[in-house]
Design a protein around this nucleic acid. Sequence first.
DNA 1: ACATTAAGTGATT
DNA 2: AATCACTTAATGT
Length: 209
Amino acid sequence: MNELLDTILKGANLEPKLIEEIQTIGRLKKTREGQTVISPGNSSDEIPLVLQGLLKVMRQDANGQEVFLYYLEGGETCAMSITCCLEGKISAFKVVAEEDSLLWMIPMSYIDPWISKYQSFKKYVFQAYQTRFDELLNAIDSVVFHHMDKRLYKYLLDTQQATGSFEIHKTHQQIANELNTSRVVISRLLKKLEKEGKIEQYRNRIDIL
DNA sequence: ACATTAAGTGATT
DNA sequence: AATCACTTAATGT
């Protein structure tokens, strides 16, 4: 029934037996743009694997302040939520659909057994984790050294990469919220990027050159 | 034409 | 880099 899932699993170098298990055990979930997939607190007992579309992973603090962390694209799964669920802890992450997306939801309870049972799954998880870890280190650097300009530019490039479009349809205010800064700062930095010839600006829209 | 929302700017901390 | 106060520009009704 699901060719998408098929091609994604085949591309991930997983054992045929595991692929079978994933196909029989998971369930398909459709999310509309803007819909929350995982929110901190209500510990969902399922891990999303992105089949199609785009998920946005954010960190949320006690005051409800949100910071953009990274995107999850097709074939990717949330390494954070996997490690969280292994520890039985509630995730402090929020995952929101950035576009209408198709997800394959896998019950948490299967994750741990699969890791011990399947070498390929262990590799898959660790690889996902490694990638995120490297990214987070970079993110920390940017925050600590107050490089908002670099953070912003990286955010733009990430968005372009993830959506596959050179047009970003967001307001300065929305971007400011994602990076946890003020609109004024974003406006100024975008202006700078525009002067440097890296972007073009319109209302509700930024083009990456 | 008027109201609303988005974006630009100078001054200040 | 953040905030304030204010201006200008774009859009909706």
